[in-house]
């Protein structure tokens, strides 16, 4: 494969994949430590009804209404889960299960009922995304990276996810201390005057934004995998939160790159003709990395846990 072909076909999906993975892995670190890992699962299920409603309201497959719909659905889901948990006095796992399956079912029903034939909007797309189709036709060579006209032809998902990833990284840096404090010792954080429940809610909203932005490009399956696998693997590598976050970013980027490459070229190496799902492969490589961390990670045991 020549340089030009690589830039046209693979550069944009690779960068989008890596940025999506990092955007999800960053909040994932805190969700895992707070035992809220499955919030990511719930959010990525309810994105479907959100985009369907966004589509029905705006009447077109345009990105912003659908993104707003998805973000709105995520917030509705979080509020509903809390309501069912508190008012119904139901354990949070079951409360999540009740809410996200029902909202997902509603999304599928709405999709079937509305006239979306001829429109590229279906459940499969929501699940696996369309990473492979995000090609950059104007990227005819390395020089295109410096050519404003060619850069304007980049897939719109790229600047969007870049912006979201940068914003999440910045938020994580700026609010590092309060986040860390309220994650590890909520009681102490409250006594020193931190608004812990606001921090918790904001974390979930940021996770929802990451999920929605990444979902748009790569589908919900990568979103769940990236919320959980890289941070979980990183947790087994170190006891220090700073290093854990760095490890998780490395693992996320590594899964995205190796998953994409394996999906695109792996079948060719094995003598096949067609590429396989990049989204699925990225989730699988994230799983392999996590499995290795479970087997060999230096800090895989809790103190006192028997081997």
């Amino acid at each position: 494969m020549s340089g030009a072909e690589f830039i046209q076909i693979s550069l944009a999906p690779l960068v989008i994949g890596v940025l999506s993975a990092i955007a999800c892995a960053l909040p994932g670190n805190f969700l895992i430590l707070r035992r809220q890992a499955l919030i990511g699962d719930a959010i990525s299920h309810v994105v479907l009804p959100g985009i369907v409603v966004g589509f029905l309201v705006s009447g077109a497959v345009s990105t912003w209404p659908m993104m707003i719909g998805a973000a709105g659905a995520a917030i509705v889901a979080v509020v509903l889960i809390e309501t069912v948990r508190r008012v119904g006095r139901i354990e949070s796992g079951a409360a999540m299960g009740v809410v996200f399956t029902s909202m997902f079912a509603f999304g599928v029903l709405l999709l079937e009922q509305s006239d979306t034939s001829g429109v590229h909007l279906d459940v499969e797309h929501a699940l696996y995304g369309n990473l492979e189709s995000l090609i950059w036709l104007d990227g005819t060579g390395w020089a295109a990276l410096l050519d404003p006209a060619a850069l304007a032809g980049l897939p719109a998902e790229l600047p969007r996810i870049a912006f979201v990833a940068a914003a999440i990284a910045l938020l994580t840096l700026v609010f590092w201390r309060p986040l860390k404090l309220s994650t590890f010792d909520e009681g102490y954080a409250r006594t020193v005057g931190l608004p812990t429940s606001l921090i918790g809610f904001t974390l979930v909203v940021v996770a929802a934004i990451a999920a929605v932005a990444a979902f748009d490009a790569v589908g919900s399956i990568i979103v769940i995998a990236m919320f959980i696998c890289p941070p979980a693997a990183a947790r087994l590598m170190t006891d220090r939160l700073e290093r854990q976050v760095l490890w998780s970013v490395v693992f996320a980027a590594l899964s995205a790159v190796s998953g994409y490459v394996l999906a695109g070229y792996g079948p060719l190496w094995l003598g096949g003709e067609h590429a396989i799902s990049a989204a699925g492969m990225i989730a699988v490589t994230a799983g392999v990395i996590m499995a290795l961390a479970c087997l060999f990670g230096p800090h895989r045991k809790a103190s006192g846990q028997r081997s």
Binding site: I32, R35, Q36, A37, L38, G40, D41, G93, I221, I224, A225, F227, I228, C229, A232, R235, L236, A283, V284, A286, G287, M290, C294, G297, H299, R300, K301, A302, Q305
Partner: peptide, 15 residues
């Protein structure tokens, strides 16, 4: 491992 059950569930589910 020291990972909680919810992380294990999410990892298995997605992978």
């Amino acid at each position: 491992t020291r990972l909680a059950e919810d992380a294990a569930i999410g990892a298995v589910l997605s992978v």
